[in-house]
Nucleic acid binder design. Structure first.
Length: 287
DNA sequence: CACTTGACCTGTCCGC
DNA sequence: TGCGGACAGGTCAAGT
C-alpha cells in the first residue's frame, strides 16, 4: 500500500533515470487506468513530451512535462512503477515485482517508452490505481485538495492540536487517515505513529492533552522520515522502481503483528477494526 | 455538518 | 482439487 514514504522513494529513485527523457511511445493496456480520458487521447497528449521534473503531493506522484502539463499517478493499494533499461539493474523474485518475469505481465496497465530505450511499467493487480494528465489549473486544485505535507513546516504541533480541538469526537486514527487534514498517511503509518506516540488509535481527539498532540506530531514525523530512509515498507506488493523491496517492514512495531507479543512489553498486540480498517495496537504501551 | 457505508477490483488464504 | 467466502485498504459518491 504505497503511502507517503513509498511514493517519495519512487519519486527520488525515478527522478535521475527519467528526467530529461522524451516519451516516445505510450501503451495503455487497461483503458480504465487513464479514464475519463480515452486511451487514444492520453497517448497523443503524452507522446513527444520531455520529463522536466518529479514531484509528489500526498500519495500522488507528479511527473512534470515540458509543455507545462503534469502526468499524475496514484498507485492506490497494489500499484507499482517499475523502470527497466538494459543498464539499470533489476532485482526479481516476486510474481508482481517485474523481476525475474517478463514485463509487461498480466498486471501491467500502462507502459511509457523513453527515447533512451528505457521503459516505465505501471503494474496494478487490483486496478484501483490511475494516471491522469493535468493542466496547470487542475494541478492547483489537486494541491489545494490535500492537507499539509507532514514533513513540512505547514504541519506544526499547533496545527495538530487545532485539528484535535476541531474534531473532538473523532478517533485520532480517523484524523490521521483523512487526506484533506494531513497528506500522505495510510493504514500502516497511522498505526505505527499511534504506537510510537503511546496513543490508542481509537482514542477520541478531544481527549488529547497538549503533551499528547506534541508527542503524536513528533511520532508522525519520525516514523515517516525513518520509513523514507529505509525506502518504504513492502508489506505486500510495493516495490521500488528497480524491483527491490523497501526495508521498513523489519521495523514495524504493530502493523501486521496482531496476536504476536509487543516488541516493547511482550503483551499481545491487538488487531481490531476501526474506521473500517484493520487496526493494530498494544494494550499496554498505548493509552 | 459530522460521520458511515458502498463501490470500485482481484490475488491470496482458509475451511470444507 | 475445487469452491465459497473473508480479507487486504485508498478514495469518492451516496446515504444516515
Amino acid at each position: 500500500m504505497p503511502e507517503l514514504p513509498e511514493v517519495e522513494t519512487i519519486r527520488r529513485e525515478l527522478k535521475p533515470v527519467i528526467i530529461g527523457r522524451r516519451i516516445e511511445r505510450v501503451k495503455v493496456l487497461w483503458p480504465k487506468t487513464v479514464a475519463p480520458t480515452s486511451a487514444r487521447r492520453f497517448q497523443t497528449s503524452l507522446r513527444g513530451q520531455t520529463v522536466t521534473g518529479l514531484g509528489r503531493r500526498a500519495k500522488i506522484l507528479l511527473i512534470k512535462l515540458a509543455n507545462n502539463l503534469t502526468l499524475t499517478i496514484h498507485l492506490k493499494m497494489t500499484g507499482q512503477l517499475i523502470y527497466r533499461h538494459s543498464e539499470y539493474q533489476i532485482v526479481g523474485g516476486h510474481p508482481q515485482a517485474g523481476g525475474a518475469d517478463n514485463l509487461p505481465n498480466r498486471f501491467t496497465r500502462l507502459v511509457l517508452d523513453f527515447d533512451n530505450r528505457g521503459q516505465l511499467f505501471f503494474n496494478d493487480a487490483r486496478k484501483f490505481g490511475w494516471s491522469r494528465l493535468l493542466t496547470g489549473a487542475d494541478q492547483a486544485e489537486l494541491i489545494r485538495h490535500f492537507g499539509p505535507e507532514p514533513l513540512t513546516r505547514d504541519f506544526s504541533q499547533n496545527y495538530l492540536a487545532q485539528l484535535a480541538a476541531r474534531y473532538p469526537r473523532r478517533p485520532i486514527k480517523a484524523l490521521l487517515l483523512d487526506q484533506t487534514l494531513i497528506a500522505g498517511l495510510g493504514n500502516i503509518y497511522a498505526d505505527e505513529s499511534c504506537f510510537r506516540a503511546g496513543l490508542q488509535p481509537a482514542r477520541l481527539a478531544g481527549s488529547l492533552k497538549p503533551a499528547n498532540t506534541a508527542r503524536l506530531h513528533q511520532a508522525i514525523q519520525q516514523i515517516l522520515k525513518l520509513a523514507i530512509s529505509k525506502k518504504g515498507t513492502s508489506a505486500r506488493d510495493y516495490r521500488r522502481p528497480n524491483g527491490q523491496q523497501g526495508n521498513f517492514a523489519d521495523l514495524l512495531q504493530v502493523y501486521g503483528r496482531g496476536g504476536k507479543p509487543c516488541l516493547v512489553c511482550r503483551q499481545i498486540v491487538i488487531k481490531n477494526r476501526l474506521v473500517r480498517r484493520g487496526t493494530h495496537s498494544c494494550p499496554r504501551c498505548q493509552h
